[in-house]
């Protein structure tokens, strides 16, 4: 398969409403490998680019369950097996007393999974990205809105994709080299 010399095509918009409607049209056109960039959170943009979050919530749930079980077993091991002490005649397995720590380890593992999972699924840390080669893209953190359609998209074909993006009335369409 011939590899495209481009990494992506980048459409630049001046207004947030244009970004949202353009994103919906790119999605409806059948593209899947595309990304939207805005300097602030835009309500409804995640839905507009057809973003489905499945992996991270499941990973956080898994992290939480792991923290819950591991936290309880740690206390059980310490209090019952490794170092059993009679404290005021209470049972060695004083499970009500273990609940606060179990809760804390659940939250700890779930939130660590959330932070680390977010970084991992986003491919971070990443010192360089091909989009940085486009000077105009710097304004994505200030006052411009962008949609990048990656050349890895099965529907990507540089000329027809460029014509399609032009049809969305962007202020400009940039080539993003590899």
């Amino acid at each position: 398969m011939k590899q495209s010399p481009l990494f992506a095509l980048l459409a630049e918009f001046e207004r947030v409403e244009e970004l949202r409607s353009a994103a919906e049209r790119v999605r409806d056109e059948g593209y899947t490998q595309f990304e939207a960039y805005a300097p602030f959170p835009v309500a409804g943009l995640a839905e507009a680019i057809g973003f489905h979050t499945v992996l991270l919530p499941m990973a956080v749930l898994g992290g939480g369950i792991f923290g819950c079980v591991a936290g309880f077993l740690l206390q059980y091991y310490v209090a019952v097996i490794a170092y059993p002490i009679n404290i005021g005649g209470r049972p060695l397995n004083s499970w009500p007393a273990f609940i606060p720590i179990t809760f804390e380890t659940t939250v700890l593992c779930a939130s660590l999974t959330a932070v680390l999972g977010m970084l991992a699924f986003n491919g971070l840390p990443r010192p360089h990205h091909p989009l940085f080669a486009v000077p105009a893209f710097r304004r994505a953190t200030r006052d411009r809105f962008f949609i990048a359609v990656a050349s890895s998209d099965p529907k990507f074909e540089s000329e027809s994709t460029r014509r399609f993006l032009q049809g969305l009335n962007p202020s400009e369409v940039h080539d993003v080299p590899r």
Partner: peptide
């Protein structure tokens, strides 16, 4: 509810 139970259960 758990705090109340835990404290009373622990103090016994």
């Amino acid at each position: 509810a758990l705090s109340q139970f835990l404290l009373i259960w622990s103090a016994n």
